[in-house]
Structure formats: structure tokens, C-alpha cells
């Protein structure tokens, strides 16, 4: 088939020993991922609006396009046509680079994930660890952006992002250690292959719960959206952003949801595994969308937690739970 041959060509480019070919293939792949993220982000933005509207007895966007599907596009046009702000106190170089860095980090993370059984930028033995190394840079980039904007609200938000990083990376890493124990390594392809008998959500439900909560905190979804807490910090680190930049920040928000739901479905829901007639990539997408919709429902219903309570939960509940998960996993599957 055509797709098969393209995939084969692409894989051979990625695997070839010529660095120029590798680079070209990687850039093409990054662009493809960017487009996928853009399409997903756009659709997710629309679904989120519609779902939250449903929860609030509203209709959501209806006028622009069929079922308001073009509303986000209209908003995008509006944001890009607005005048941009010139900040007096901002460190302009740092400020203008932080957001592109964040977006490229997200794209890089998704590139590292195995979306199709056959395609992945690189299939290395420590893939999962690399993913989390990249993810851990994101709060730092947010910190840079908030700190560089010279706005006090953004500054507070930046400090919060570092606090969140400190308390939520540890449970994430402990859960990943447990995954590594079961699947005897951190190769992502292998992790999915190991789930052909039982998904990891069945094997370690505690680990899944901890991972899900920590991941919500990691990507600033409610109830952990402290960095853009609108009732206190207006928009947090995005407060002084120019409209066009803000559109990018929204895109970043949605792509982070996509990234994390992909990650959760790969690590706990068996990735592309599923009954035969539907192709694996579609299975993965379905699982990711279910996770994303759950995140939306949580957003529509819950109240925002306070920063000190979140930190306390991270240190006193999630870290012990993830340790217990690690120990149980060790005893049951290794010892």
C-alpha cells in the first residue's frame, strides 16, 4: 500500500547512517507532529468548549461554521489581528524565546512517543526516561517566561510553576520506575508490547491514579491550574502576553493535553493495542481522546485547589502512594 511504502521510506531515512538524511526526516516528522498537534488542538478546543457548554446548560459556539466548528479559527484570527504589547519591564529576548521553547519541547516529546507501531523518531532503550527529561524542562521554561515578563502576577505564577515541578516530578518518576520494573526496561515499544496480556492500569491501579493526578498537575489542568489561576493571578504567566503569543499559549495548552493523554494511554492503556480491524493508531487516538475528555469533565466540575494544599498532597499522599506502588510492583512482578 502507499502508506506502507511511505512509512518504509521514512523509516529507512530515519535509520540511515547519513546525518543529513536523518535531519531531513526528523524535520519532516516534526512538521507532521506539529500539524497533528494543531489539528488535535483545534478540535480539542472545540470539543472542550462544547462539552463545558453542555455541563453549563449552554450551547457553546454555534454561529461560525456548522456547530460553531470554525469559532476557534475566528478567535485565532482575532487574536492575531490585535495589536501586540510592548512591555517595559520585560527581558524581551528571554520573554520571546520562552514560548517557542515550550512548544518545541512539546513537539519533541510527542516525537519521542510511538504513535504508529512502525513510526517513532528514535527507538532507544531509555525512551521513557528521555520523555520525562524533556517534560521536566517545561515548568522551567514557564518560569523563564513568567520571570522575564516583569509582571508581578506572572512572577508569582513562575514561582508556583517551580514549586509544582518540585512536588510532582517525584511521584511521576517513581511510577515510571515501577513501569520500568514490570517491563524490564524503558523502551516505549517494549512497554506497549508487554501490555498485550494485561494493561498496566489493571496491573497497578494505584500507579495509574498517581500518574493521572500528577500528570494533570504537570500540564496545569484544573484543579491544579495554579499557574493561570484566573481568579487570583488573572492569567498567571500569560498575563502580559501579546495576543498572538497568547494564541500560541492556548495552542501549547491543548498540545500538552494531547501529549499527556497520549502518554497515559501508551503507559497504562496499551497504546495501539486493540481488536484487529481498527488500525493501531486509531486505537491510540481513541484512548487519548477519552483521557482528554475526562480531563475536560474534571475541569468543568471541580474547584481550584490552593497551592499549599497541592504541595501537601504531592508530598504527603502522592509520593507515599507511588512508593507503595513501587514496592507492590517489585514484590509481585520481580521478587
Amino acid at each position: 500500500m502507499l502508506i506502507d511504502s511511505i512509512v518504509k521510506l521514512f523509516n529507512s531515512l530515519l535509520a540511515s547512517s547519513n546525518i543529513a538524511y536523518n535531519l531531513i526526516a526528523l524535520i519532516i516528522y516534526a512538521i507532521i507532529i506539529f500539524l497533528v498537534l494543531a489539528v488535535f488542538g483545534y478540535m480539542f478546543g472545540w470539543v472542550e468548549r462544547k462539552l463545558i457548554a453542555k455541563a453549563q446548560y449552554r450551547h457553546g459556539p454555534t454561529y461560525v461554521g456548522k456547530y460553531g466548528i470554525l469559532q476557534n479559527f475566528a478567535d485565532l484570527v482575532k487574536l492575531f489581528s490585535k495589536a501586540s504589547l510592548d512591555l517595559d519591564n520585560a527581558d524581551s529576548i528571554l520573554y520571546s524565546t520562552a514560548l517557542p521553547i515550550l512548544i518545541s519541547l512539546t513537539i519533541f516529546t510527542v516525537m519521542l512517543l510511538p504513535i504508529f507501531p512502525s513510526i517513532q523518531a528514535t527507538n532507544i532503550s531509555f525512551g521513557l526516561l528521555l520523555v520525562f527529561v524533556v517534560i521536566a524542562f517545561m515548568p522551567i521554561a514557564i518560569f523563564l517566561s513568567g520571570y522575564a515578563s516583569g509582571n508581578k502576577f506572572a512572577d508569582i505564577s513562575a514561582q508556583r510553576s517551580i514549586l509544582m515541578l518540585l512536588s510532582y516530578e517525584i511521584p511521576l518518576m517513581l511510577v515510571i520506575a515501577a513501569i520500568g520494573l514490570i517491563s524490564k526496561g524503558y523502551n516505549l515499544q517494549n512497554i506497549i508490547a508487554m501490555q498485550s496480556n494485561a494493561y498496566y492500569i489493571v496491573l497497578m491501579p494505584i500507579g495509574f491514579a498517581v500518574f493521572f493526578i500528577a500528570m494533570l498537575a504537570e500540564i496545569e489542568r484544573p484543579p491544579f491550574d495554579l499557574m493561570e489561576a484566573d481568579s487570583e493571578l488573572i492569567a498567571g504567566w500569560m498575563t502580559d502576553m501579546s495576543p498572538a503569543y497568547y494564541a500560541l499559549a492556548l495552542f501549547l495548552d491543548y498540545s500538552k493535553v494531547f501529549m499527556s493523554s497520549l502518554l497515559i494511554s501508551i503507559l497504562f492503556l496499551g497504546g495501539w493495542l486493540g481488536p484487529a480491524p481498527i488500525p493501531g493508531a486509531v486505537w491510540l487516538l481513541i484512548k487519548a481522546i477519552v483521557i482528554a475528555v475526562i480531563a475536560v469533565i474534571i475541569r468543568a466540575t471541580t474547584f481550584r485547589m490552593r497551592i499549599d494544599r497541592i504541595l501537601r498532597m504531592g508530598w504527603l499522599i502522592l509520593i507515599p502512594l507511588s512508593l507503595i506502588n513501587l514496592i507492590i510492583t517489585y514484590i509481585v512482578f520481580v521478587g
Binding site: Q56, Y57, D230, S231, A300, T301, F303
Partner: peptide, 17 residues
Amino acid sequence: IGNDLGQMFTLFMWAYM
């Protein structure tokens, strides 16, 4: 009060309705 506690307008819309 829902909005002040950082809820995404759900409670607000309900009560408003």
C-alpha cells in the same frame, strides 16, 4: 463563589439560570 474558587463557570451558569 464558584468563580472565586476557580471553577470554570459551571456553578455560575447554573445559578444564573
